[in-house]
Every structure is written in structure tokens, then in C-alpha cells.
Amino acid sequence: MADLLTIENLGNLVMLCFLQAVLGFDNLLYISIESQRAPVAQQRAVRFWGIMLAVALRVVLLFVMIRLIDTMAEPFFIMNWTGVLEGGVNFATCVFLLGGAFIIYTAVKEISHMLSVEHLDTDVSHKSGKSAAKVVAMIVLMNLIFSFDSVLSALAITNVFPILATAILLSGLAMILLADGVTAFLQKNRMYEVLGLFILLIVGVVLLGESGQAAAHAMHDESLALHFFGYEVIPMSKTTFYFSVVVLFAVEIIQSGYSRKLARERASHTHSQSH
């Protein structure tokens, strides 16, 4: 126990908590949006149990990854289609590819649905069409996919399991505390749900980019990086990702303010004409 209570481990814990908070934003956003697909009376319980189960499985995943990281890093096969598709594929590559594609599919499907509905009441009833168990299962599944990014990043800081597990448990507690607030905000400000779906779309692109370097980083061999038609698949930097998110929020805030200003001017003009 005394070996754990060191300045180095304390610093690593603080860094990991910050990392989990930053990388967990997109996860919390997905949980808040997906939970609204469940029956209204069960949405809060869905968020709670979805996060609890996902955090428990994330700790298990972390333990497994620490024990089997070398085995998982080995590429399953190496593609050598010169000029078309080249590079190595390992377990993390598959997770990032499938997870990214699924997130993009989910975001595009929900955006398309929003464009197709004629009445908001219809939209709300559609969102409550999934069973609570199905929504919990989706939250757990997507949380595990999101967790690969944060777990792999955490392992780059330390491999001390108790420190890593503590950081994950604290991030799970934070998600439980914030999930209801984020969901309530999205329900009151539905235009931000569209913004959230576009952020999820970017997250899917980020995960697809991460797949290109998964095998190369794991084996410390740049020749295993994926190349598509001669171009290397390079992941989007976290700085670029969060800059894109900030720009989206700024555009939405400015557009909302401008729309309110136009509405006031039109109301004032209509009132003056009526007199």
C-alpha cells in the first residue's frame, strides 16, 4: 500500500483524471442523447445503470489489456496491396474501424431523422421507442468502444492498475453526476442536440483516423501504418478535435443570438405597422 502512496503515483492520478474528463466528454454526450430513446419514466435509471455497467466493464477491460497488451498488439495480418491498401491490422485497428463506422452511422441516421420529421411530437415519440434494456446495452457497448481511446492513452502514462482503476471509477462518478444535467439541457435546448450529433460525427472520423496508426504505435513500427491509395491514414490530433468542437459551439451561439435579434426586430416592425 505504501508503494502506491508516492508523489509520482499521485501526479499520475491527477493527470489521468484530467485525461478521463477530456476524453469522456464525447462519451457523456452519447449517453445523454442515447438515453432519450428509452421510455421517459426510465431514462434516468437507464443513464445510471448504463454508466455503472460500462465503468465496471471498463475496469475489467483495463485489467485484461494490461495482461494481454503484447498479444493484442501483434497484427492479425499485414495488407500489401501496393498503391491501394497497405499496413498492419491488429485488434485495436478493428475496434477503432468498427466503432468509428458505427458512430458515424448513428449520427447520420439521427440527423436524417431530424430532417424528415414533420412534428416535434412525432420526434419525441420516436425517441421513446426503444426498450430500456436495449438502450442500456447500447450505452455499455459504445462506452467500451470509446474506452479504448482513453484506456490506451492512460496506459501511456502508467501501468499501475490501482491508479488506473481509481481514475476510471472517479470519471464514472463524474459522468453519473453530470449525465442528468446534460440530458436536461439538451431537452430544453434541442438545437444543441443537432450540434451534439455533429460532434459525434467528428468523433467517428477521429476513431477511423486512430485505426490507421493502431498497429504501428503498438509495435513501434511505422511500416505498419495504414496507407490508402498511397496516402497514410493519420489520426486527427486532440487539439484539432477540440478546436472543431469550440468552433461548432461558437457558430451555434452566434447563430442563436442573431436569430433572436432578427425575431425581436421583426416583432418590433410588425408592432409598429399595426399602430
Rank of each mutant, 00 (worst) to 15 (best):
E8S: 09
L10I: 13
L10R: 11
L13W: 05
L19S: 04
D26S: 06
L28K: 05
L29W: 03
L29G: 03
L29Y: 03
L29I: 05
L29P: 06
I31Y: 01
E34R: 08
R37C: 02
V40P: 04
R44K: 11
R44D: 06
M52K: 04
L53Q: 03
R58T: 10
V60M: 13
L61H: 11
L62K: 09
F63W: 01
E74D: 01
F76P: 03
N80Q: 10
G83M: 00
V84S: 09
G87Q: 07
L97R: 01
G100Q: 09
I104V: 14
E110L: 07
L115H: 14
T122P: 02
D123C: 00
V124F: 02
K127A: 05
K130A: 02
S131V: 04
A132T: 13
A133E: 09
K134I: 03
K134C: 04
V136Y: 03
I145Y: 04
S150D: 00
L152F: 09
F161L: 12
I168H: 08
S171K: 03
I176F: 12
L178G: 06
D180F: 00
L186G: 04
Y192G: 08
Y192V: 08
G196E: 04
G196A: 07
V205P: 01
G212C: 05
S223A: 15
L224Q: 10
L226N: 05
H227Y: 11
G230I: 00
E232H: 06
T240H: 14
F243I: 12
E252L: 00
I254R: 08
S259L: 12
A263N: 12
A263T: 11
